[in-house]
Design a protein around this nucleic acid. Sequence first.
DNA 1: GGCTCCATGAAAAAAAAGTTTCTTCTTGCT
DNA 2: AGCAAGAAGAAACTTTTTTTTCATGGAGCC
Lengths: 298, 298
Amino acid sequence: MSRRGTSKQESPRNASDIESRILATYGKLSRSERQLADVILAQPGGISEFSASELAELAKVSKATAARFFQRLGYLNYRSARVAAREYRRRGSPLDTLNELSAPLEARGNFGIHLANDLANLTRTGESAAPEQIDAAVRTLCKSRRIFVVGFRNSYALAAYAFAVLNTVRANVTLLTPGNLDLVELLADIGPGDALFAIGFRRCPVILHQLLAVAQKRKAKTLLICDAEASATMQWSDIQLICDIRGTYLFDSYVSGISIINFLCSTSALELGPSAWRRLEEIEELHESTNDLSDTGA
Amino acid sequence: MSRRGTSKQESPRNASDIESRILATYGKLSRSERQLADVILAQPGGISEFSASELAELAKVSKATAARFFQRLGYLNYRSARVAAREYRRRGSPLDTLNELSAPLEARGNFGIHLANDLANLTRTGESAAPEQIDAAVRTLCKSRRIFVVGFRNSYALAAYAFAVLNTVRANVTLLTPGNLDLVELLADIGPGDALFAIGFRRCPVILHQLLAVAQKRKAKTLLICDAEASATMQWSDIQLICDIRGTYLFDSYVSGISIINFLCSTSALELGPSAWRRLEEIEELHESTNDLSDTGA
DNA sequence: GGCTCCATGAAAAAAAAGTTTCTTCTTGCT
DNA sequence: AGCAAGAAGAAACTTTTTTTTCATGGAGCC
């Protein structure tokens, strides 16, 4: 019982978060206070990541003003504002429910953060992508006689995707599955006119370097999709496409890799024109004739 | 030359974030340190929201230990760890990108359009995602004794991804590779306490239905990631996560699928807690001892 | 057993952070 | 102009946080 927090301890307002409180009084703020308000509102992570002094400094305002600001906002002091912000942000975390009463956990909030991060990855990747590298990649994918697709560990999934899509668009695409001896055959086989399409995101095995190096030595084109940290690998490839892969928590995000691969293959299909369409059509017919797809819809 | 960061200032490691640093040494930590590590890893928002004292209290450990912990992790002091965490989290903030570019995407020609489409897919998927389905999915991934991951055609790549990530987090995960006889073995083997994690995007073969149906009949949990058009398949699964997959040109876009899978696995790791972290560390160590990764960076 | 080594917490010391006081400055009003 | 009110910074002050020092206790070794 007892809605704690309505006591004199805290603010009379029951406004939930700092942002609301600020916005509710934004018009009545003085110049310095507004500077502070602006700084605070501009923090996507909320104020709990900052000390009052830091905020003051960011707003080019004295610590005194900052201290007063939070009191005027209705908090007992900065500390209580900070923990309030933290609690607020925390609502909706799966851990919450886990810790508090293991009943139905409600994971709403964090998913949003996760998606926002992936959105940012995509956007940044798009911004930094070099058009001429993309062009070169498409040309390579279209003009090479044979294409070998390779990727290890996490990158294997992307390689599998690239293979699946590319293979519907053109012939002579091979996915080198890790762990078998195809790799050796490749080394014996690859040459001018071929291309090695490598996916080499963070934590990729050294063998990828070796494959790229050999392919290059044999005059095959080498195309690498990787992240910015893979600079060691990049030097072994003719064309590099660099993706943003930052994840919110433990794992890197590969959405931008997937997206680029899709784009490359789509564009290649466009470039190949009728031959690609004919192939797509044939594949479709094959599936229909074997009747193995279940797309009857709703 | 010039491995910045080797100076006395900071750590010799170039590990980017605190979580990585912790995982890299998790096994070598003492009891108290591990308590701290657990508390820290359990914070989805990172440490920057907390003071070292607060962390110490949460971990039931003295402030002294906390202070030492961050130094041992390679930071100059707690403050620098906190700032690092904040910076790390900040990179890639959606605000960053939203504020800074927003316009130029469309100036990027077809690639920009393509990316914009993927962005929209992600956003829509996020908006329509049902939190209780996500919760249920995470619970299933954590609590099931064994998990079988399956996907055909394009969905195979996503299944491979799901397998790769899930497998770093928990044991008893199996990827059913299409085309071999594992499928039959599965049918004989699966039962209550197991889960079938199926990726069934458009144009999936009927065998997926069959697998799901059998799993369900045998009281295994069935979890399906699919698109809105797969309603025929959905009826065979206990939990459905529906992604937007509209592509700009020939191919569907799987970015939202990748994103959801990443989220599910991350959240599962959080929920599994120490057991997941220990596993991550073991895997990391195995790779290090076999020396097969090439992460030396620049 | 006696020894060292190391982890740990308690407490002291050092350093920041946060709050209050006091003074200055601006602004608006008469 | 003179005055009052309020805002803001500097600096003094208080509180909290962080680091270091020191003492204790346990694990492993001779």
